[in-house]
Design a protein around this nucleic acid. Sequence first.
DNA 1: TATATTTGCTTAATCGTTTAAGCAAATATA
DNA 2: TATATTTGCTTAAACGATTAAGCAAATATA
Lengths: 346, 346
Amino acid sequence: MTNKKKITIKDIANVLNISAAAVSKALHDDSRISEKTKKAVRQVAKNLNYQPNHLASALRSGKSKLVGVIVPRTNSNFFSSVIQNIEEVLNKKGYNIIITQSNESYKKECDSIDALLFTQVDGIIASMANETVDLSYYEKIKSKGIPLVLFDRGENDLNVDYIGIDDYKSSKIIVEHLVEQGCKRIAHIGGFKRTRIYNNRIKGYIDTLKKYNLPLDQELLIETNLSIENGRKKMLQLLNIKNRPDAVYVAGDYAVLGALQVLNENNIKVPEEIALVGFGNEPFTDMLTPKITSVNQHSEKIGKLAAETFLNHIKKKTVTQELNKQILDAELIVRDSSYKNKTSLK
Amino acid sequence: MTNKKKITIKDIANVLNISAAAVSKALHDDSRISEKTKKAVRQVAKNLNYQPNHLASALRSGKSKLVGVIVPRTNSNFFSSVIQNIEEVLNKKGYNIIITQSNESYKKECDSIDALLFTQVDGIIASMANETVDLSYYEKIKSKGIPLVLFDRGENDLNVDYIGIDDYKSSKIIVEHLVEQGCKRIAHIGGFKRTRIYNNRIKGYIDTLKKYNLPLDQELLIETNLSIENGRKKMLQLLNIKNRPDAVYVAGDYAVLGALQVLNENNIKVPEEIALVGFGNEPFTDMLTPKITSVNQHSEKIGKLAAETFLNHIKKKTVTQELNKQILDAELIVRDSSYKNKTSLK
DNA sequence: TATATTTGCTTAATCGTTTAAGCAAATATA
DNA sequence: TATATTTGCTTAAACGATTAAGCAAATATA
């Protein structure tokens, strides 16, 4: 029953009375092997149900054909979609991917990097944990000469390829949209400034407020990790200040969900009393009452670009990496939570 | 800058003027190597920043220390949590995991299996795609003698280890809860019968209805894939029958979300007019208005058990696999959507 | 003291593939 | 016809670790 003996190129070679080297070359479509032999080899390989030993070829060639992917978590639509697209592109080129979750923990991220390096991955595509400030582990990847591509949460200081959206511009579009809706006191529940993308969103928020001569109230600008719980907490905090905001732009969909819960629980009308905008366009933003305006981060495109960027690296064989930012325009999806005109969007 | 040369055991051997074999043995704490030499080897290994070449040892030993995990998708809390726990247990034993998503597609699942076999994984832990009926690809895994552990969506016909919850009993608990709330016409939007877990849920639903002498109306029992869209469609279908149900038990949280949207849009009061129960205890069930009653599937425990079951297989070196079901009791989390007593659960 | 056992290493083969180097036969070029 | 090139393979050495077999020196046993 169990297919005991493993078939190797030697077995194929024996059948055809040629050398193992010839078989290897035939299977790789080497130009120095006759078409006739190639056909015969392929046929025998099929008959014997030959499966190449990936470990052997990886050892010999020094290429494992594995790519490591590190994400803060997989259970968000953004990351799972990015991963799916990375996989799609890389599978076509014969790569498999190893996914690891950092759970926003710096320690777990370091462990993941060690594990991936140990597995001899040919490259790493990563989005950093919220906690990560020390970049030495990422430097370790670079120093080993392993291609590193960052997306979404990246650090320019590393001088590696980066793919992400234009966070500054996204904030600008969001604030302008809220201004159009007649909002005058726009709050921002943002991520931590130390993370570049959140810093850019904060900058975009501040600059656009200035542009429209709106109050830049320090009470209205909050930094936090963007969990649901903190979304709730920070929204409550905003409700408790004397001069409440009439709009809240939250830099993450999970946090905006927490914020909405608090507003619903306190019977505050959204968007009439307080308009709400999230970030990430997670599917659930379209499922809540009211549906939440959010920003589509083009996860498909980011995933594809990340994979292609890695492939380019491999092709070019450039040892030196340099900062190469690919910035996409995000797209604001306006839904009920921020649309005050008479006719509902529903 | 770039650490060009890779350090091998040979380099360590050269420094100490001993053979590579001695180094290998020293690093594996072989009893035939003197404590003195071991210490020296460890020290030099550290100094040179030696990283064992996983591919070489994997090739020689025939063990890749990689485990493949196949899930329908990673962006559900259930699967991502299972994965996280599998990873935790296996990492401790020196294994890394390769995660692949089938996206509920049979073809993608087959491709994943091929890719994992190609990568020479030491085992596969999987939850089947909705589409999967043909088990020949899973037989392929078995026939290669690679340990296979199934969870959640498994097929007894494969006669391999299986970890899941007691679906029949879960349905029983749900229906009894609804009966307690005074519901008389309980509908079930279920998964496809061909998938064992959904079949068991359907059976539990039917049997419990019988037990309480409730009508077993064919109009009230619907099979579907449990997407949000189908949750909407099937709920609409239920609303359009002459004698509407007063409770709907949906076999998946995404579908129950769609159902709730439809009820909200039609201003049908939940749970007063129609009570609603989901399955899976996805975090969003706790975030909607009203919060949805759902079933906790113990993803943490399932993940841990799956990993441990794989490890046991490796330890026992049993070539033959046999059906070994580990069934956990699920837990009903009662929330507003099905709780009709005066005092809200909020 | 002679023999047996243990200790601490070395040598060399091996895992399955890739690949540089080489060589004879076939074909092209002069 | 003589020489150069191309074609189609073979041989053998890697890749980096593990491991069976073996051997000399140290230690134990009789």
